[in-house]
Design a binder for these strands. Structure first.
Length: 266
DNA sequence: ATTGCTTCCTGAGCGC
DNA sequence: TGCGCTCAGGAAGCAA
């Protein structure tokens, strides 16, 4: 499940591999994968002039003033190939380049999407996103403001993309464990000091995870089809015991698994 | 305004 | 061996 560090790793890889390449075609292999797809513009996308990340979205701008917005959801992969070497079982779309290389969008569960917009179009899903957690503006005062009147558990709030853009289930678990804060604690009950700890641990975990090319639990791969390494540094997600030897508890919050240590996290 | 449930989708893992 | 069940989960859409 690609979260911010995994998407950042993919974007870094794309910048190495496909920046300045000319798109020959974009093919939809499974219907519904590409939104706003217009056959006429297909050959006219042009050259890829920039590749960026916003939250868990990948944004590629082209020389003919289009932008491709890609969300991988849980199992989406973008794999760059010079020659078709492997068979991928769940190809949803193909981006073909002039030099006979291609970017394959493979996605088992088919939740991932590609959207096409004109460069200056407003994109609703991006407009709604909260702050980037690795930005300077993301601090305890921002969280305090956002958490006023929020009775939801902190775990759920960390996953809310309108508040923080890019966190997913694994990192939300890891951040709260490292901050020693219970995932059940209500947002509006957290002091500035606690929020400061959350901010610090968020940055720390994300920066370390980016350094190790993300976390591979099952499906996530880099553009070169390689796994990440941060799974070796997980302290609570899918663990049985915490560092102090206490039994990790597993519960459901908002339909997702929460792992935490009831002793260490208060 | 906020919260919580359902839907999308498929493969892995489990018990029998 | 194979069947049926549960689980994994990001975000949209809708109901309360």
């Amino acid at each position: 499940m690609p979260e911010l560090p995994e998407v950042q790793t993919i974007v870094n890889g794309l910048n190495e591999k496909i920046l300045n390449k000319k798109i020959v075609s974009l093919n939809e292999v499974r219907e519904g994968t590409i939104q706003n797809f217009i056959d006429d513009i297909n050959p006219e996308l042009g050259i890829i002039v920039s590749i960026k990340r916003r939250g868990k979205y990948i944004i590629m701008e082209t020389s003919n003033n289009y932008k491709l917005i890609i969300h991988l959801r849980m199992t989406g992969k973008l794999i760059y190939e010079r020659l078709p070497e492997k068979m991928y079982s769940h190809v949803r779309a193909n981006l073909m380049f002039e030099d006979d290389t291609r970017l394959i969008f493979d996605d088992v569960r088919a939740f991932g999407k590609i959207q096409i917009y004109k460069k200056d179009d407003e994109v609703e899903s991006l407009e709604k996103l909260g702050l980037e957690p690795v930005s300077k503006d993301f601090n305890e005062k921002y969280l305090k403001r956002k958490f006023i009147n929020r009775k939801s558990p902190i775990k759920n709030l960390l996953l809310n993309q309108r508040i923080i853009a890019g966190l997913g289930n694994i990192y939300a678990n890891e951040i709260l464990y490292r901050a020693r804060i219970s995932p059940l604690k209500k947002g509006n009950e957290l002091s500035l000091k606690k929020l400061k700890t959350i901010v610090e641990k968020t940055k720390e975990v994300l920066e370390q995870a980016i350094k190790y090319n993300g976390t591979t639990i099952s499906d996530y791969r880099s553009v070169e089809d390689k796994t990440g390494e941060f799974q070796n540094f997980l302290k609570v997600y899918r663990k049985e015991y915490c560092e102090c030897g206490h039994q990790i508890k597993k519960i459901k919050q908002a339909g997702r698994s929460t792992y935490y240590c009831p002793v260490c996290q208060k």
